[in-house]
Design a protein around this nucleic acid. Structure first.
Length: 930
RNA sequence: GCCGGAGUGGCGGAACUGGCAGACGCGCACGACUCAAAAUCGUGUGGGGUGAUACCCGUGUGGGUUCGAUUCCCACCUCCGGCACCA
């Protein structure tokens, strides 16, 4: 007697198994030198309050892969934590009077639950929270290491300063030069801030040879670092002061007809003549008022001012005027340039505007440039002219030493002692100061005598005081907290604490280390753990972190290596027989970026609204949703069209189908009659749907997909599998609420097949048995390959195919119970990474030992997977003309003979001889040329 | 402007190293079950053509290499991303 199997009930299964796994510590990861390790990491979330579908898309495929690695025999570490410092918590404090501490922790509490519902193999005992003193103690400690080793320094930097609020604003808080919230103007102000000398590592950061990272990320980082090769040349002012310049085109030195200094350049004052003083000051003041954005605005006309001073060009001792202009940036190179208008477009524009001389020194072949008439600079190849000893030297389009002209001039400059080969970077040092409360304090103390010292290690962490007041002005409460502010230097003299806190990228630059031993209190991480787990083997996250986070964490790792932080770890590695060589150069060896899940497109309701017009606007007392294809009655005098936008009771209706004007505003009056046929009962204005285009999800757009709701409705397994199936991992795409049906059906079918049990009383047929086993092994290969390559969608597709054949075999009663069991067993093992709850429940159901997740990954058997019959494809002149079923063991001669004997081929040959017959074994194909 | 990536059915997407384009799924159409609907099951589904075959066209566009091109080469178009007065 067959018992009717229970319905698939994900809620029950998922809560049962997650509790059991938790109790059993199934996902605890411990150092075990007898096994190979695998450190899988996914970027830790900011605790904004709710888990987004994007988090699921980022984390569940990575989890599937981590589970696969575990079944492959690796000892896997897959931790999770929270990047918990940052501005939103502080904004909440100001706006809603909740302490950031409370706000953050209650969000974390909520998100932990949501994360657990995912069914990921996170080891929660390794959780880290970056705003916890036990964590930020070490963030401070790293700062101290950098400070003590001279990597951290104080420097001046421009900040967005709000004079109204007396505070610094982040870039994203400034819109059109105004404070986003108050609308008050923001100015650029120089402030002393803390930096890390990241440029020290620029060259090493450009070496990606040991990394398997997406090309796009490497490309972005290379752009960001912006290495350029050239020469540094020393010009002198008339009065003998040196002006260093950097140029990528030393071959154009003889064409320099003026110099330009950045307005902030320290020599400006000295070179400015009495007569130009007032004009120069005016210009400088004008520049200071501009924000970075204004200054770099597109197609901006060149501005500048003559200083009255002159410089001597060292290559030909020519006297050339010195100008200042804001197109020269104080932050790049030396803040001064030689201007070669004939061969640099920016200099050219400047020279034309201010009537400065232009001299051609690179003459392109086949044309003669005329300085008076040339429409733009010539920045390409040619022959050097007007260049003293170098006349006739060819200049190519190559950069740096590869260009013979540049190469020769650099050698000459070095011999003459007026310049040398040099490299410059676009990359700026990392500004880590934030004038905020909710961040890790910078452990620095300022003595009254101006001394700057780091806080002794035994006094770390410098704790954030909790009894602080958040003022709506946005100022950091640390500046007013006397208990925090007042302290002592090491030798007991009165001192003041640094009130800036650290950039949150600082916290996320080393969190992969804290996961190793979150409770370790002698050091940021336990060398014994690190010796085993480091480095991270696979890292996944969004491409938006390509330049900042990923560059900082690489730099951080290299600095720790150089400052000996890994010495004890290297020692432990050696003790365990692992070679530490090169293990601390890079934090993450393999990187993959997931794409983004966008909002689903949806048409808006098509409505007929009537009421009374006031001007262009309709005040509606009746709104009826109608079929958009139905004709609107000719005598209808209201507004008919699709709702494009709806904000509360204000509708924007696209009436282009009926009248010429496109958009009409309709205000729905209180108590208006709303009729939406598809929703029964009393309707209200909030049920009217507006059109949604494909765009990023956001609450205000109303296109957010809530994973909690999906889990409640379908179960976590379905949500996981759907996300992996429906999108390319690296690409993402718009959400499709219908597509999930396919995964629901698949999971239900699997449930039904397995719970129904092996077919009893079937009439097994040898061929069907063999076909199913073959398919099973082909699926092993495809799923394995998919997981290896982050091609989750094809792996799920393969599992669906296996299910399809299994279902057909079961229905046809054509397979034996043994084959059913063998096939089901393998299928559940293969499904375990994707649908961990379902696989576990069914694994138990078929009587296999707990847990499916600790089983070995199925081994592919090529012999079983091999087809015994294949389709021989016959092409004539590259077109498929016939298909013949043949044994897979067919030889080349047999295949050619079979093909030539085919009816279709004989028709085409028409008695003649083929010119050529080609056999392609791997494609089971014969290609005949006639 | 410079650097990079991508264009395949109505949709998401598949195709190993140059070898049967469109796997798998959604959607859609028709049929079965049902009083009906949902669910489920069956059949079909790139376009043209045919009663059905045959055949022709088809992976952004145009050329090329090849017995054979979504895949390689050249030129172009479109979209997306990064950088951008960086000397």
């Amino acid at each position: 007697m067959t018992v009717k199997p229970a319905e698939y009930n994900p809620k029950q299964i998922e809560s049962y198994w997650s509790e059991k796994w938790e109790r059993d510590g199934l996902y605890r990861s411990r150092v075990d030198w007898s096994k190979p390790k695998h450190y899988a990491l996914t970027m830790l979330p900011y605790p904004s309050g709710d888990l987004h579908i994007g988090h699921w898309f980022a984390m569940t495929p990575s989890d599937a892969r981590a589970r696969y690695m575990r079944m492959k025999g690796y000892n896997v570490l897959f931790p999770m934590g929270f990047d918990a410092f940052g501005l939103p918590a502080e904004n909440a404090a100001v706006q809603r009077n909740v302490h950031p501490w409370k706000w953050t922790y209650s969000n974390i509490e909520r998100m932990r639950k949501q994360l657990r519902s995912m069914g990921a193999m996170f080891d929660w005992e390794r959780e880290v929270v970056s705003c916890d003193p036990s964590y930020y103690k070490w963030t401070e400690w790293f700062f101290k290491v950098f400070f003590d080793n001279g990597l951290a320094y104080r420097g001046e930097a421009m900040v967005n300063w709000s004079p109204t609020l007396q505070t610094v604003l982040a870039n994203e808080q400034v819109i059109d030069g105004k404070d986003e919230r108050t609308g008050q103007p923001v100015i650029q102000k120089l402030m002393t801030q803390w930096f890390f000398n990241i440029t020290r590592y620029a060259d090493e950061l450009l070496d990606y040879s040991s990394l398997d990272w997406p090309e796009t990320v490497i490309n972005m980082q290379k752009n960001w670092i912006g290495r350029s090769e050239g020469a540094q040349v020393t010009f002198k002012t008339e009065h003998g002061d040196a002006i260093e310049i950097f140029t990528t085109r030393p071959d154009t030195l003889w064409g320099a007809t003026f110099m330009v200094l950045a307005p902030e350049h320290p020599l400006v004052e000295k070179v400015t003549s009495e007569g130009q003083k007032a004009a120069v000051e005016t210009y400088k003041a004008q520049v200071a008022r501009l924000t970075e954005i204004d200054r770099t605005a597109e197609d901006r006309e060149k501005t500048g001012m003559f200083t009255g001073g002159y410089a001597i060009n060292p290559v030909n001792n020519e006297r050339i005027p010195i100008w200042i202009a804001d197109y020269v940036l104080i932050t790049y190179g030396s803040g001064a340039i030689m201007a070669v208008p004939a061969h640099d477009q920016r200099d050219f524009e400047f020279a034309r505007k201010f009537n400065l001389p232009i001299r051609v020194v690179i003459q392109p072949e086949g044309e003669t440039l005329n300085p008076d008439t040339m429409p733009e600079a010539h920045s390409h190849e040619g022959i050097m002219v007007n260049s003293g000893p170098f006349n006739g030297t060819p200049a190519t389009n190559d950069k740096g030493r590869k260009n013979p002209a540049i190469n020769a001039v650099i050698d000459w400059l070095e011999v003459q002692g007026i310049g040398k080969e040099a490299v410059n970077y676009r990359l700026r040092d990392w500004l880590i100061s934030r004038q905020r409360y909710w961040g890790a304090p910078i452990p620095i103390v300022y003595g009254e005598d101006g001394t700057v010292e780091s806080v002794p290690e035994e006094d770390l962490p410098v704790l954030l005081p909790e009894d602080v007041e958040f003022m709506p002005t946005g100022q950091s409460p640390l500046m007013f907290h006397q208990g925090f502010l007042n302290t002592k230097t090491r030798d007991g003299k009165p001192a003041r604490r640094e009130t800036d806190t650290m950039d949150t990228f600082m916290c996320s630059s080393w969190y992969q280390l804290r996961y190793l031993s979150p409770n370790y209190d002698h050091a940021p991480f336990d060398p014994e753990e690190a010796a085993y787990w480091l480095p991270v083997d696979v890292y996944t996250g969004g491409v938006e972190h390509a330049t900042m986070h990923l560059l900082y964490t690489r730099e951080f790792t290299k600095a720790l290596r150089d400052f000996g932080v890994y010495d004890a770890t290297a020692e432990a590695m050696r003790r365990h027989g692992r070679n530490p060589e090169g293990q601390f150069d890079e934090p993450m060896l393999v990187l993959r970026n997931q794409g983004q899940i966008l909002g689903e497109a949806r048409p808006g309701h098509f409505v007929m609204a009537s009421g009374h017009f006031e001007g262009e606007k309709l005040f509606a007392n009746k709104v009826k949703v109608v079929d958009r294809n139905a004709p609107v009655p000719a005598n209808f005098d209201g507004v008919a069209g699709e709702i494009i936008r709806r904000t509360e009771r204000i509708l924007t209706v696209d009436v282009s189908t009926t009248v010429d004007e496109k958009l009409v505003t309709v205000e729905v009056l209180d108590g208006a009659e709303i009729d939406i046929p598809e929703i029964e009962g009393q309707n209200n204005v909030n049920q009217l749907k507006h059109r949604l285009d494909i765009q990023r999800m956001s609450k205000s757009k109303g296109n957010v997909v809530n994973p909690d709701e999906l889990v409640a409705k379908y179960g976590a397994d379905t949500v996981r599998a759907y996300l992996m199936f429906a999108f390319k991992f690296e690409k993402g795409g718009p959400w499709d609420s219908q597509g999930i049906q396919g995964v629901i059906r698949w999971i239900n079918d699997v449930w039904e097949i397995v719970t129904t049990g092996a077919p009893e009383g079937s009439r097994p047929d040898e061929k069907a048995n063999r076909d199913l086993l073959r398919k099973t092994h082909q699926t092993i290969a495809r799923v394995t390959d998919g997981l290896e390559k982050f091609s989750f969608n094809t792996a799920v597709a393969a599992l669906m195919e296996l299910k399809n054949l299994m279902q057909a075999s079961v229905r046809a009663q054509s397979i034996s119970p043994e084959v059913w069991h063998e096939s089901v067993k393998n299928m559940l093992l293969l499904m375990a990474p994707f649908t961990p709850f379902l696989a576990e429940a069914l694994w138990e159901h078929i009587g296999e030992p707990y847990s499916v997740h600790t089983q070995a990954w199925p081994v592919y058997n090529a012999e079983i997977a091999a087809e015994d019959e294949v389709t021989l494809v016959v092409q004539i002149n590259g077109k498929v003309r016939d298909r013949i079923q043949v044994p897979a063991s067919i030889t080349e001669e047999e295949a050619k003979a079979t093909a030539l004997a085919s009816e279709r081929v004989r028709e085409f040959l028409n008695g003649g001889q083929p010119k050529k017959v080609i056999y392609i074994a791997k494609g089971n194909m014969v290609s005949i040329v006639i």
